[in-house]
Design a protein around this nucleic acid. Structure first.
Lengths: 194, 194
DNA sequence: TAGCACATGTAATATGTTACATGATTGA
DNA sequence: TCAATCATGTAACATATTACATGTGCTA
């Protein structure tokens, strides 16, 4: 039930509506930690409120409902965080695709890897800009939610980018070896494609 | 439907039974890319076979059924890999916990961060050993499934470990600052996340 | 006044988990 | 012969996605 705790965590940081929370997932958590659509978030908020872990503190215009975490919600969040293991796995379609690359022929794999590296570079640039934009806010709060998340994002994008470049290099080296070994080089590799 | 393609990918690498595939998820993919339990894998294999994307190539003792990918399965896998976007998110409970750390008090957060860093270090050691063990197999195949995965694992563990250490350091510095600046120390900073 | 972002919900379907269920083979 | 591992499956339940459904308030 990670969604439950993700929501508690976001609400512990600041009161929000279902709409806000949907956006916060998209902006802050989606790429590295967790995501959920509004159709999952709204019912879960009702359940959390029913269990007394959060409460509606305001009902604004357009039907907007602002929720805040309660004391028992905070307690539950803390309990969950301090309980370590579960040793669950990850579901990351991007990484899955990276791994399955090895089932393609080398030229196609190389092309995709380069695209991935480029994408990581673009996102890195984007995140850097974003950080510059909000950096002043973090000066006094080392534990700021966004600050830790941003740094983690920076580092993992860097990591992905470097890995993709490394992988391309491996392919190039292998090609070079193959060319030296068989200068005629015109075997048609077997391909199962249209 | 990533499970489908994860299975096709594993079978493209080598024919396997449902039991094998369960193990391969646990060993190779679980931590970074995807995971599934046997109760999800078996029905999906039946469906894939029904769709002609894989076929049973052997029925051994103990009821073991070995499946192999078919030509149209390979086509489907390739099509999926070459179709880029979807821009889906990630579900990673570990990273979620990292992010939600900022809702704890500093001493508790520091303790968890140190534990995380230690765990990453242990896993890193373990993975290094594992790689040494199978390295010879990779000499001639730069695109080997396990080789790319292992390198990715190495790099992301390193990344997580360094991030956790960085985060602990931030907390320590903040403590030092706080001690110098306000020995009484009880303002509540306003937080707004990205 | 039209279009967009805000804002919340539900229903049908698909996917994933936990628990249950069974049996074969191997090695200590 | 006992325990572990191999090996496959199903049923009940929980979680997540897609599509449907509705309405508000702002601003160009």
């Amino acid at each position: 039930m990670s969604l439950r705790h993700a929501l508690l965590g976001l609400l512990a940081d600041q009161p929000s509506s279902g709409y806000d929370l949907t956006k916060r997932f998209e902006r802050a958590l989606q790429k590295y930690a967790w995501y959920a659509k509004h159709s999952q978030i709204y019912p879960e908020l009702s359940r959390l409120a029913g269990d007394g872990l959060i409460e509606m503190i305001d009902e604004g215009s357009r039907g907007r409902k602002t929720y805040a975490i309660t004391a028992s919600g905070r307690e539950e969040l803390r309990r969950w965080l301090m309980t370590p293991p579960q040793a669950r796995g990850v579901r990351n379609e991007f990484v899955l695709r990276l791994f399955l690359l090895s089932t393609l022929e080398a030229p196609e794999a190389r092309r995709l890897l380069s695209e991935y590296a480029d994408e990581a570079r673009r996102e890195l640039t984007h995140l850097h800009e974003l950080i510059q934009h909000v950096e002043s806010r973090w000066k006094d709060d080392p534990l700021d939610f966004g600050r830790l998340a941003a740094e983690y994002g920076l580092r993992s994008l860097q990591c992905t980018q470097e890995w993709a470049r490394w992988a391309v290099e491996q392919l190039d080296r292998a090609d070079a070896r193959t060319l030296r070994a068989t200068p005629e080089c015109d075997q048609q590799p077997e391909i199962a494609s249209t």
